[in-house]
């Protein structure tokens, strides 16, 4: 499980030196760096944010069932201030993409992400959402990070509820490190990028190539040739 987001490098650092970032450089006292007041304010805002995260459950397959189990009485997500599953993206803070995402569903996922208002975070739950999982086939998105930026990847097929809760706690941990001083940098969003893939074609080619077992998916059965391998070069581009 790891924290990753292209736009921000040093999550977890509560105090960052002034001048290291472009964009916003305000401060109540002093010339542009974080001050006692702003860091206290950061603390209060982050405390409020991280304890009232409203998840937007984008559940598609098996992982959605584990997400439901997390919300039910045995695991009880409400302990983390997340009992309000917000099925409307406008009122949600964290997108939990639970389950496999085919290309047919990709524009839906992107639109829901675009509709969520800042501040927002994304959790990729399960192997299929993170990398395509065992479905390295014609209809499946090979990792939702080609479509939307992802903050936390949760491995597992499907991840246990504990893993989901741990992933959400990592989001909380990430929020704890955010500061107003980097507001523009963290929360900037290009309105013209709405609906477009997050990754460039080169990045997608790098992210989605066959790896591990899927390179050994040989064609066909029986008396046909047994060892035909499809490599990216086989495909018509």
């Amino acid at each position: 499980m790891g924290l990753n987001r292209d736009a921000q490098g040093e999550a977890g650092a509560a105090v960052t030196p002034a001048g290291a970032h472009g964009g916003h450089r305000g401060g109540l006292f002093g010339g542009g760096g974080p001050t006692f007041l702003t860091t206290k304010l950061d603390f209060i805002i982050n405390w409020g944010r991280r304890n009232s995260l409203w998840p937007m459950p984008f559940g598609t397959a098996c992982c959605a069932i584990e997400m439901m189990a997390s919300a039910a009485s045995d695991y009880d997500l409400a302990r983390f201030g997340m009992e309000r599953m917000s099925f409307s993206p406008r009122q949600a803070d964290v997108l939990i993409c639970a389950g496999r995402v085919p290309y047919k569903l990709a524009p839906v996922l992107r639109r829901i992400w675009d509709q969520m208002s800042q501040p927002k975070w994304a959790v990729s739950m399960g192997a299929c959402a993170s990398s395509g999982g065992i479905f390295d086939a014609y209809s499946m998105v090979q990792g939702i990070d080609t479509i939307i930026p992802v903050d936390v990847y949760i491995p597992g097929c499907p991840p246990r509820p504990e893993a989901l809760i741990y992933g959400l706690m990592m989001i909380q941990e990430k929020i704890r490190g955010e500061t107003m001083d980097r507001r523009v940098e963290l929360r900037a969003e290009d309105p013209y990028a709405a609906g477009a893939p997050r990754a460039t074609p080169e990045e997608i080619a790098g992210l989605t190539g066959p790896f591990g077992n899927s390179t050994h998916q040989n064609q066909g059965s029986g008396r046909g040739p047994k060892d035909r391998v499809h490599r990216p070069a086989d495909r018509i581009v």
Binding site: A137, Y138, H230, R235
Partner: peptide, 22 residues
């Protein structure tokens, strides 16, 4: 897709598939 001459990962590259989907 289920015809035998259809490759498992589709005919287009992943980048092209993503672009078309979105």
């Amino acid at each position: 897709p289920l015809r035998k001459d259809f490759p498992l990962r589709g005919r287009f590259s992943r980048a092209e598939q993503t672009r078309r989907a979105l």
